[in-house]
Every structure is written in structure tokens, then in C-alpha cells.
Amino acid sequence: MMHATQQVNTMLLSISTFIYVGAMFLYLFGLVFKNKFLDMSGFVIFVIGFLLETAGLIDRWIESYHLNYGHIPITNLYESLVFLSWTIALAYIIIDLKYKIRKLGFPVSLIAFIFMAYASFSPDVNSRIEPLVPALKSNWLVFHVITSFFGYAFFALAFGAAIFYLISDWYTKYTNGKVISYLPSTKVLDDISYKLIIVGEVLLAIGIITGAAWADYAWGRYWSWDPKETWSLITFLVYVVYIHLRYSWGWHGKAAAIFAIIGFVFVLFTYLGVNLILSGLHSYGSA
């Protein structure tokens, strides 16, 4: 019985993985065939994938109570990958509803799919619900992880927009300056990428601060140059440079897009590289 329910959440999450890849193809065909209906279907399918993923996470949360562990599903590598794709999906849906940048759905569904596929199909990632070690039993966990992950999510979206910028830029040049109205304009993409980065930066700052507050509360030391802390500070500083280059030197366009892409490499290393390659407090246990 217990085992059966645990399969429900991993099954829901696997299904949403496939749905994201389906949405990605619809978005892609929408771009290739310049078809608004395909874009719309991509979005609808993407939202369905997101809802299933949400259901999977909620079921997993409830299940952890059945196992007497009772914790939010953001505490091991599997859960963190799923949660990251969930935050990316949610952030995209919100900004799409607000700013109508549907076509960003293509890189976003691809990114959401990659994280989900890594979680669901990599033999190195264990999908069992595990109990919390004492250090993680704190309300700070929720604030710290949610703010940090939404920060990562916004950087991921900015990365998507920056990649799209380069494609759009290249395509415009390729077609001899004839603006392809179907692709989002480079101006819009540049602006969106920047705005997503500043949202990510604020969230990352709050994530770092809540982490420091938690460490102070748990160990009396708000900063100890642990690799995860250090890398999140490094990532924060990389985007500080981006923001100052933009404000003080008016960097934008291609240079800013390339910077946003490099910035995301730092985000990825902070999120995954530190845990998988370096050692420290944040290692995902059996991962």
C-alpha cells in the first residue's frame, strides 16, 4: 500500500515529463510553421503538464506524512530537480499571462523537460522519499529553498530568452535584415532577459540571506564560506557585474545575451555542480 502510493507521485511526475516534451514540440512546430494555433496548444499542454507535476508534488508531500516523515518535497536531488522544473514552469506561466511572451515556451518547456528527465530517468537519482536529517528540520528550509529556487528559475528563463535572442538575431541577419515578425523581436527579448535577471537577482539575494539567517540560528555563524554559499555569492556577483555593465556602460543586445548565458552556467554550477562535484553541507545525501 505504502509502496503503491509512492509510485503514484513518481508516475504523475514521469507523465508530466513526457507532457513537457510534447509541449516543446508543439511550440517548436508553432515557430517553424508560424502557426498561432500550435503555440496556443503548446501552452495548453504545458499547463496540463504543470498541473500534473503540481499534483505529483502534492501527493508526494502527503505521502511523506503517511511515512511519518512529514516534510515538503524539496529535500533530496530528485525532489529538488522536480521542484526546480516546477518553479520554472510556474514562473513562465505567470509571466506569459502577464506579458504575452508565449514563444518563450519553446526554450522553457525544453529546460523543464531536461530537469524532469534527469530526475526521472537518471540511474544516479533516487526517487525514494527520505526522512529529514535534524539539521534540515527548520521553517527556514521552506523560505530558503523556495526563494533560492525561484531565483534559479528566473535565471533559467532569462537564459532561455537570451538563447532565443541569439537565434532571433542570427535569423534576422540571415534573412538580410528582413525582420521575421513571427519570432519575438530582439528588443523585446533583450528587455525580458534583463527583467528576468533582476527578479532572479532579488530572489537569489533573499535566498542567500535566509540561508545565512538559518545558519546563524542553527550554528551561530551566518557565513562560513561553505562551497554552496561561496558559489551562490559568486553567482550573485556575476549578475551584479551584468547589471552594472548594463546601467553604467549601456551593455545590451548580443553582449548582454551572451553574459546572461554565461551567468546561467554559474547558476547551474551553484545548483548542481557544487553538490555533485564539490563537497560540503548541501550534498544531497545518497545522490
Binding site: 564560506w225 562551497p227 561561496t230 558559489w231 555569492l233 559568486i234 556577483l237 556575476v238 557544487v274 564539490l278
Partner: peptide, 8 residues
């Protein structure tokens, strides 16, 4: 940034 990486 560059030097902080060394320590990690």
C-alpha cells in the same frame, strides 16, 4: 569571483 572559486 575568480579567487573565491579557488577556495571551493
Amino acid at each position: 569571483v575568480a579567487t573565491a572559486i579557488i577556495g571551493t
